[in-house]
Write a protein that binds this DNA or RNA. Structure first.
Lengths: 242, 242
DNA sequence: CACGACATCTGAATTAGATTCAACAAAAGA
DNA sequence: TCTTTTGTTGAATCTAATTCAGATGTCGTG
């Protein structure tokens, strides 16, 4: 009597369908114009059914974001598995961001929106917890890379925890993404190859930590070579320019 | 016949009153619960009158944020006027953030919200322009400090524009603020003295740029001494712990 | 001072869209 | 087949932003 199981499976399938439809509608009409009724319509279900899955619009948005984050995390996991010096893997984290965000232009906007205090707090605690759990590997991976650097004798944390070091890199990337996406804050001209600039800044930061071997950040060719190597070795199947 | 002028003055006064009331209500009930009707009520005007000043809720929010930004910018202007080595002024920018955000806990939340694409785009273009104009000095000041560092022979931009260097610092600070305010992303324990950590990270970054004289970032006492000197010399009248 | 023209203010009515829930339908069990 | 349980529906409700027709005030003029 696998009835219960089948039901459960159908339910989950439908949920995925809703999430997918939500994502489509965001792509088509923008996050601003997303309406619960339209999501239900597109899936040929009544609004009430949609509300069986998500207690509110914020709940749905968080779930859409969570799925995106899963994909994002999977890129970081490639980096974690990449056998290369820790310092290079740290740069590869930045390249992962670049690959991910150029693939999903809407994602940043969504992430930015759902992590706003106002929106975040109006989502149910359980979903928030799930999002955080989905995110968790990111900081674990970053901390792991820092630990590897220390273990290899390339990095001296100088009294800081590994998290302290990792947080600086995370902040650097996150902040740059914010600047990039803030329309009008920055003249577009200054931002040719923004993701390349992110990588360069990351090299500067790692140099600042004294992470060996130090890199000549003004050597454009070396940076491009590293980025290309990462794209080939780690993200060969994710087409994306930087 | 200064009637027209008096009218104009009254109008502006009332606008300020609305902005003030909005800010009060956000402090009392949170951004989430801000209602246009309440803002009008508190000022003893009808809703329609409020809409004479602001074409939408987003318009009002942007104006509240803009006022906050003005105050924030004035802190940066103190830094710009401070006669100290450029490198110290760069750290003072971070301290300015610390002073500002510990004074105005709600401010970050508001800024974060209004700069979300979704909200930003639904505000009228003119107000957006005003916000950007109010912000503009921040990047001008940062770029100026970088230029000073270069002029003093302490910094080699290595082929990057001054903006390129300044953007890294801005991103570092902005990213850290984002991490800090993202509830649950980071265990609170790791974040004792978060603004102190921000300053330290900034020193690491500046070291990475080879900004002379290099600083021993593991020297806690030196960092505290610098922060205290900045608080005394630049922000003596802004009480705030870091 | 009275009057009309014009500006400003008012808040009830409108609107948009999220959310609910009473009624209906399908499936399971007896 | 009838009953109960479970799931689905979409019209009705609700909230809060926004509008706008009318009320009120101000000014200049005869």
């Amino acid at each position: 009597m696998g009835t219960r199981e089948r039901r459960q499976r159908d339910f989950e399938l439908r949920e995925q369908r809703f999430v997918e439809a939500g994502r489509e509608l965001i792509r088509e009409d923008g996050l601003l114009n997303l309406q619960m009724a339209r999501v239900a319509d597109r899936c040929e279900y009544a609004v009430g059914t949609l509300y069986q899955h998500f207690v509110s619009k914020e709940d749905l948005l968080l779930e859409i974001a969570r799925k995106d984050i899963e994909a994002h995390v999977s890129l970081f996991e490639r980096v974690a598995r990449w056998s290369a010096p820790a310092r290079d893997r740290m740069i590869a984290m930045t390249v992962a961001d670049a690959v991910f965000f150029s693939h999903n232009p809407e994602h940043f906007q969504l992430i930015q929106y759902v992590f706003c205090d106002v929106v975040w707090r109006s989502a149910p605690a359980e979903r928030r917890q799930q999002v955080l759990a989905t995110q968790a590997p990111i900081s674990a991976i970053a901390v792991g890379i820092v630990d590897d650097g220390v273990a290899a004798g390339d990095l001296d944390r100088g009294g800081l925890s590994s998290w302290g070091v990792a947080s600086a890199s995370w902040a650097q990337a996150l902040g740059m993404l914010n600047l990039l996406h803030a329309e009008g804050l920055v003249e577009p001209i200054s931002m040719v190859q923004p993701y390349r600039l992110m990588c360069r800044h990351m090299q500067v930061l790692l140099n600042g930590f004294g992470w060996q071997p130090l890199v000549d950040v003004s050597d454009d060719a070396a940076l491009d070579a590293l980025i290309n190597r990462i794209r080939t070795e780690v993200f060969h199947d994710c087409s994306a320019e930087i």
